[in-house]
Design a binder for these strands. Structure first.
Length: 457
RNA sequence: GGAGAGGUGGCCGAGUGGUCGAAGGCGCAGCACUGGAAAUGCUGUAUAGGGGCAACUCUAUCGAGGGUUCGAAUCCCUCCCUCUCCGCCA
C-alpha cells in the first residue's frame, strides 16, 4: 500500500512523541559519492516527486566531511608510526623513560589531541548529513512517468468485467453486506479497542482465514518461501525499510520498549536480511508472509469510516524479493503478476495503474498499484501496491550480495499479495446475490467449504 | 523477575598492552597431481571509507560507546545483545 499523504506533524489523539533518533551507526541513504559529485542529478530526480530542494548545502557538508577525514587519517598514520617507533626503541634497549622516548611520547600526545579535535568536527558533520539524508525519499526510476499527483497515474491494463447493477438492482457496499450476514462486529470492537478496529465473526472470520491460507498456498506453489515474522519490530528495522524517521506518526509504538507494531510485513522482511552479504547464487530470494498490519492512519479522519477498507489493524499477505540489481526490473513485473494471479483466481476484476513520480511512496522507485473493482461502491480501490525500491532499502538496511569484486547492494521489491480485508470487501460486493447471499469463487470452495455465504435468517 | 556464562573474520576457534587485520582449522577460489574425480600439496581468500588510470596505498573496524596509554582484541567504566539454570507463563 503506498503511503498516504499525511499533513505534517498533525498529532492524533494518542500523540506519539517525536523520536529524535538518528543513531550514528545508521547507514547513509543516498550514495554519498553521488551527492559530492553531482547533487544536481539528485535534485532533478527529487523534483520529479515534487520536492524542490537545493542540495548544495548538503554537498558542502559531504565535501567538508571528506576533507576532514583525509586530514584526520593522515594524522592517525603519523601517530601509528610514532607508536611503533616507541616500541621498537624500547625493544632495542632504549630506556622507557629516557629523553628520546619521552620526546616521542609528547609527539604522540600532540597528535592525539589534534585527531580528537578533527574527529569531533567530523562526527558532527556526519550526524547532520545523515539526519538530512535519511529524510530524503528514493529517486524515481527512469521508467516512472512524470506527474504531480494521483490524477497523473497511468492505467496499464484492465482485467475482468466490472459488475454493474442490473436495471432496477441496487448493489450494496461490503459493510452493508457484512452487517446483514453478521460477518463483522464493529460497535463492540470500539469497546475492545477504539474506532477503526473490527472483530470478524462466524463466516467472516472463517473467510478471512481462508483467504490467508489460499493466498499463501498459491504463492508457495509459485516458489515463494513462507515467512511468519515478528510483528513487533525495532527502530532500526523501520529505518531500514524507510518508515522512519519521516513517518513516525503513522506507526504504533510500544512505550516501554524500542519496539513498534509493523505497518507492513515489508518491514520485518527487509530486516530479515539486514546487515547480510547474500551469496549471489542464492538470489533472487522470494518470500511470502502473512502478518497483521498496524497503521495509525493519522490525518485520514472521516475517510472510509465504515467497513474493512481503512483499519488500524488489518491482515495482509506480502510478497517480497531480494534480487541482483540487473534482475529487479523483470522481478517487478513477475511480482506484480503474482499478485494479479490471486485476483484472477478469485475472479475479481481489477486494473493496474503505474504510479507517477509525484505519487510514489517514500521508498519506492517505481510502483504498480492494483485496484480491485468494488461493485457496491462502483469504483476501483487499491488492493495491492507493488514497488521496486532499487537499492534504497538495501543501502539503509545494509544488504549486499557477493560480487566478482567486492560486494554490491541488492535490490528489494515488495507488493501486497493481497490486502486480505479489502479482498473480502471485493468478494462481498462482487458476489452479492439478489437473495441476500454471496456467491464465492470456485477457487475458495476447498478453503471455505462452501461456494456461498448465506444469511443466517 | 533471580543467578551465572559469553560476544573475535563466511563459519569454528586461539589470542591478557607493542609490526595483530588478527594464529590454526573449516569453507570457498585458483594452480599442481589425475584419463576424470576423490585424497593430497601449493597459493589466495573480510568490510567500509579516502587517494591513485593502475599496481598499490592510507585510515577505521575483534558487540556498541567512553576512558587509561606513545601504543588496546587485550586494562577500566557504561550500555546492548546472546546463551544456560531457576521462577513464571502459551
Amino acid at each position: 500500500m503506498h503511503m498516504e499523504r499525511i499533513p505534517p506533524a498533525r498529532a492524533g489523539p494518542a500523540e506519539v512523541q517525536p523520536l529524535g533518533c538518528a543513531p550514528a551507526d545508521l547507514p547513509a541513504v543516498l550514495d554519498q559519492r553521488l551527492l559530492r559529485d553531482d547533487p544536481e542529478r539528485i535534485s532533478r530526480q527529487l523534483a520529479r516527486r515534487g520536492l524542490e530542494l537545493d542540495l548544495t548545502g548538503l554537498q558542502q557538508i559531504a565535501l567538508q566531511e571528506r576533507d576532514l577525514e583525509e586530514q584526520r587519517s593522515t594524522l592517525q598514520a603519523e601517530g601509528n608510526r610514532v607508536g611503533k617507533e616507541v616500541g621498537q626503541r624500547i625493544r632495542a634497549g632504549a630506556s622507557p623513560n629516557g629523553p628520546e622516548v619521552q620526546e616521542l611520547r609528547e609527539q604522540g600526545n600532540r597528535l592525539k589531541q589534534q585527531v580528537a579535535g578533527l574527529e569531533e568536527e567530523e562526527k558532527a558533520l556526519e550526524v547532520r548529513l545523515r539526519e538530512q539524508l535519511l529524510a530524503l525519499p528514493n529517486l524515481p526510476s527512469e521508467q516512472t512517468p512524470d506527474g504531480a499527483s494521483e490524477a497523473d497515474n497511468v492505467e496499464r491494463k484492465r482485467w475482468g468485467e466490472p459488475r454493474r447493477p442490473a436495471p432496477g438492482e441496487t448493489l450494496q457496499e461490503h459493510w452493508q453486506i457484512a452487517e446483514r450476514l453478521a460477518l463483522v462486529e464493529t460497535e463492540r470492537s470500539v469497546r475492545i479497542a477504539q474506532s477503526r478496529f473490527v472483530t470478524l465473526q462466524g463466516a467472516g472470520a472463517r473467510l478471512e482465514r481462508a483467504l490467508i491460507s489460499f493466498m499463501l498456498d498459491r504463492h508457495a506453489k509459485r516458489g515463494y518461501t513462507e515467512l511468519l515474522p515478528p510483528i513487533l519490530v525495532n527502530t532500526a528495522s523501520l529505518t531500514g525499510s524507510g518508515q522512519l524517521p519521516k513517518f513516525a506518526e503513522e506507526s504504533f509504538r510500544c512505550a516501554e520498549d524500542d519496539l513498534w507494531l509493523t505497518p507492513t510485513a515489508e518491514v520485518p522482511i527487509t530486516s530479515f536480511h539486514r546487515d547480510e552479504v547474500i551469496p549471489s547464487d542464492q538470489l533472487p530470494l522470494r518470500y511470502a508472509a502473512y502478518t497483521p498490519c498496524f497503521r495509525r492512519e493519522a490525518g485520514s479522519y472521516g475517510r472510509d469510516t465504515r467497513g474493512l477498507i481503512r483499519l488500524h489493524q488489518f491482515n495482509k499477505v506480502e510478497l517480497y524479493w531480494f534480487t541482483r540489481p540487473e534482475e529487479s526490473e523483470a522481478a517487478h513485473e513477475q511480482l506484480t503478476r503474482d499478485a494479479e494471479a490471486i485476483l484472477e483466481a478469485l475472479e475479481l476484476p481489477y486494473r493496474r495503474l503505474e504510479l507517477c513520480s509525484g505519487d510514489l511512496g517514500f521508498s519506492a522507485a517505481r510502483t504498480y498499484d492494483l485496484e480491485v473493482w468494488l461493485a457496491g461502491a462502483g469504483a476501483y480501490r487499491e488492493i495491492s501496491s507493488c514497488s521496486t525500491c532499487g537499492d534504497f532499502q538495501a543501502r539503509r538496511a545494509n544488504i549486499r550480495l557477493k560480487a566478482e569484486k567486492g560486494t554490491r547492494l541488492v535490490h528489494t521489491l515488495n507488493g501486497s499479495g493481497l490486502a486480505v480485508g479489502r479482498t473480502m470487501a471485493a468478494l462481498l460486493e462482487n458476489g452479492q446475490q439478489a437473495d441476500g447471499s454471496v456467491q464465492l469463487p470456485a477457487a475458495l470452495v476447498p478453503y471455505v467449504g462452501s461456494d456461498r455465504l448465506q444469511p443466517t435468517a
